[in-house]
Amino acid sequence: MWSGNRSGGASSWEGGGAAGGGSPGPAGPLSRAPPFSPGTYERLALLLGGVGLLGAGGNLLVLILYSKARRLRTPTHLLLVNISLSDLLVSLLGVTFAFVSCLRNGWVWDSAGCAWDGFSRNLFEKSSSHKYIYGAF
């Protein structure tokens, strides 16, 4: 079976070939079947787009309300603003890569895009203190 890992080259088969020590892989060209059907990618894009829009809109609303209403400027609300800003960044920068990939029926970014996607989601989630508020370390 083809593992999908490109580290062994385009003709590597999992558990086969000269480097694998087993029997050679099947004859013929390798085909990369997409993991999901096109309809599933459309539904995932719709879901991710909705989550991104709702997340961005709701968190922008929180930030605008905090900046306009002076009575909301308390230390507790500042903590909520920190969470809202972090979630806004995840909604804008974290969801974008997966959304575009779903629109194009597969991951379209290179390894740097993959690294940025994982780094940005992890950074923005860790910069928020909501995990410590709710007790989920």
Rank of each mutant, 00 (worst) to 15 (best):
L63P: 00
A69V: 11
G50S: 15
S84G: 06
S37F: 00
L63W: 01
L123G: 00
K126I: 04
T76D: 12
A19P: 00
K126P: 00
L53C: 11
G28C: 14
F124R: 06
R71F: 15
V51C: 15
S86R: 01
T40Q: 13
S128C: 10
G52D: 02
L72S: 03
S129T: 03
A69N: 12
S129R: 07
R32H: 12
W109P: 02
I83E: 10
R73Y: 02
P34A: 15
L72T: 01
T96C: 14
R43T: 09
P75E: 06
L65T: 02
G106K: 04
A27N: 13
L85W: 06
S23E: 05
R43S: 10
P29H: 09
I83M: 12
F119R: 07
R73M: 03
W107R: 02
L123C: 09
P75N: 11
A98I: 07
S37C: 02
F119E: 02
T74N: 05
I64C: 14
S127G: 08
A112M: 10
A56F: 12
V108H: 06
G106D: 02
G106Y: 05
V51F: 11
T40L: 09
E42N: 08
N122Y: 00
G21E: 01
G94Q: 08
G52N: 02
A45R: 07
S129G: 02
L30W: 08
R32I: 06
A19V: 04
V108S: 13
S111E: 06
L72C: 08
V62N: 15
L60H: 01
V108M: 07
F36I: 03
A45S: 15
L88F: 13
G58E: 06
G94Y: 03
L80M: 14
V51K: 01
R71I: 09
W109T: 01
N59C: 15
S91C: 10
P75L: 13
S91H: 03
S120W: 08
R32E: 14
L48D: 05
F99H: 10
L80C: 09
L93V: 05
V51S: 11
G21F: 09
S129L: 11
R32M: 10
L46Q: 09
F97W: 06
P75M: 12
G39L: 15
P26N: 12
V95S: 03
L61V: 09
E42Q: 14
P75H: 03
L79M: 13
G50P: 01
L47W: 07
C114D: 03
A45T: 01
R32A: 14
L123S: 08
S31C: 08
R104V: 01
S128E: 00
N59T: 13
S86M: 07
F119Y: 08
F99G: 04
W116V: 07
W116F: 15
S23D: 12
E125W: 11
L44M: 14
L44Y: 12
P75Y: 07
V51I: 15
G28D: 05
L65E: 07
K126T: 10
S37N: 05
C114H: 04
